[in-house]
Computed example of a mutant assay.
Amino acid sequence: MNDEDALVCLAALSHPTRLAAFRLLVRAEPDGLSTGDLVAATQLGQSTFSTHLAVLVAAELVKPEKRGRQMIQRADIARLRAMMLFLAKDCCGGSPALCDGLIAELACC
Rank of each mutant, 00 (worst) to 15 (best):
N2D: 14
D3K: 00
D3Q: 01
A11L: 06
H15Q: 08
P16T: 07
A21T: 15
L24P: 02
L24C: 09
R27C: 10
A28I: 10
E29D: 14
P30M: 08
D31H: 12
L33Y: 05
S34I: 14
D37N: 14
L38T: 05
V39E: 12
A40H: 11
T42W: 00
T42V: 07
T42H: 01
Q43F: 06
L44Q: 14
Q46W: 10
Q46D: 13
Q46N: 05
S47L: 08
T48Y: 00
T48R: 04
F49D: 04
S50N: 13
S50Y: 11
L53K: 14
L56H: 10
A59Y: 03
A59Q: 09
V62R: 02
K63T: 09
P64M: 05
E65P: 07
E65Y: 15
G68Y: 07
G68R: 13
G68W: 08
Q73S: 15
D76S: 13
A78I: 02
R79W: 01
R79V: 07
A82F: 00
M83F: 02
L85T: 03
L85I: 00
F86D: 12
A88P: 00
K89R: 08
K89Y: 04
C91M: 06
S95Q: 14
P96R: 09
A97P: 06
A97V: 15
L102G: 03
L102H: 04
L102T: 07
A104Y: 09
A104Q: 13
